[in-house]
Computed example of a mutant assay.
Amino acid sequence: MGLETKRLKLRLINQNDIDDFHNLHSIAEVDHFNTLGIPVDLKDSKKILDDLLKDQESGSYFTFHIELVEETKFTGFIALKLGAFKFQAGEVWFKLLPEFWNKGIASEALAAVLKFGFGELKLHRIEAGCAVGNIASARVLEKAGMQKEGTRRQALPLKTGWSDNHQFAILSSDYYANDE
Rank of each mutant, 00 (worst) to 15 (best):
T35S: 13
S163V: 07
F74V: 07
K81T: 14
W162E: 09
F87D: 13
D17C: 02
E127H: 13
G129Q: 15
A109D: 09
Q154V: 00
L97I: 00
Q154W: 09
E127R: 11
A28E: 15
A177D: 02
A136N: 03
K115G: 04
V30F: 10
I66F: 05
Q167M: 14
E149N: 11
A155W: 12
I135C: 04
S58M: 10
V132G: 10
D17E: 03
A131Y: 11
K81G: 04
A112W: 01
E67R: 08
K43H: 10
L24M: 11
I66D: 13
A136L: 02
N165K: 09
C130T: 15
I126V: 08
A84K: 13
A89S: 06
H32Q: 15
G129P: 12
P98W: 01
H166L: 01
L68P: 04
F100Y: 15
F77Y: 11
K6I: 05
R152L: 10
I13C: 15
F85W: 09
G2L: 07
R11K: 13
S60F: 15
W162K: 15
Q56N: 03
R139Y: 12
F94K: 03
E71F: 12
F33I: 03
W93R: 03
D164T: 02
I126W: 08
L12P: 01
Q15N: 07
R125P: 10
F33G: 10
M146L: 15
R139K: 14
F94I: 00
D164W: 05
W162S: 04
G59K: 04
L49F: 00
T63S: 14
L42Q: 09
